[in-house]
Nucleic acid binder design. Structure first.
Lengths: 150, 150
DNA sequence: ATTTGTGTGCAATTTTATTGCACTCTTTGT
DNA sequence: ACAAAGAGTGCAATAAAATTGCACACAAAT
């Protein structure tokens, strides 16, 4: 992981659709040498994957919401059961077990409030071990960055 | 946005490093026709960008934390000022203005607790208009999905 | 000094991306 | 109903990029 690798990773995190030839020139390497570095970065797992990021609005998920969840029973198996339940939901894009005031935090991407309502039914009511939950609807997204600064 | 477009988007959201030829075959189109669809999806902004997702641990950001922030002054300009401050921080990967108990939620990716400490100094103390903040350190990431289900 | 391992550039080859073209199908206007 | 226009497709030729073998350079270890 030298300076050139970091440079490549920064480029890729911003735009991974560029050609190898193009990036090779930018970092000052031959295309073949650059390609070997890229393959190594993927193989060693520094690069987890290359993906397309869609425009949520254009993809039909207009609403974002954060939900903090407090469980009734806090045992490992109860925690896991709830996380499994949440993870299986399409509308749940992030799910974390956390320290602090609550046990779980979820990030939702929703089509509309009906979907929210239905989701609450499945995750938070009935017999799902949830003591309390607080929903924060996202008004403005100031930053939503996939890149990690190196 | 027909069935084939959706199929392509789903493929790309999972793995955008595949070749056009490869995907063309999977969706049952000729490479040229498939390429034209991909270009259209990018041009119209359905595909926002293609990026590399790094392994946070291997990239040196081991800790994740969520912070809910309550501001003292809630005016538009105050909100904006705080969000600008937060957005400028490398360790802040997501920043949202939200409804509910708090005003702002931040997602942090940290190298260590020293970085957290320094960040708190810059964002939450001094004269930064923060009334209160609660930090939830992520214990387990059950889901962290960039894809949007179509 | 020799060996070993890692990284590099060059050049040849294979694979992909890209483009022009003719064709089909659907929609729109007359 | 019929012609025109628009959108999308496959094919084939061409341009560009990825991939690989090879010889060389450099550094660390023996």
């Amino acid at each position: 992981m030298d300076r050139i690798d970091k440079k490549l990773l920064n480029l890729l995190q911003r735009d991974a659709s560029r050609t190898n030839v193009d990036m090779a020139e930018e970092v000052g390497l031959s295309p073949s040498s650059c390609l070997r570095r890229l393959r190594r970065l993927r193989k060693t797992g520094v690069i987890d994957r290359i993906v397309a990021i869609l425009n949520p609005a254009r993809a039909g998920r207009v609403l974002k919401a954060l939900v903090t969840v407090e469980l009734k029973l806090h045992g490992e198996q109860h925690m896991r059961r709830f996380l499994d339940l949440a993870t299986a939901e399409e509308a749940v894009s992030q799910a974390y077990a956390v320290t602090g005031e609550t046990d779980v935090v979820l990030m939702l991407r929703l089509r509309d409030m009906d979907e929210y309502d239905a989701l609450c039914d499945r995750l938070f009511r009935d017999r799902t071990n949830v003591a309390r939950f607080f929903t924060m609807v996202v008004i403005r997204t100031a930053k939503d960055e996939t890149a990690i600064q190196l």
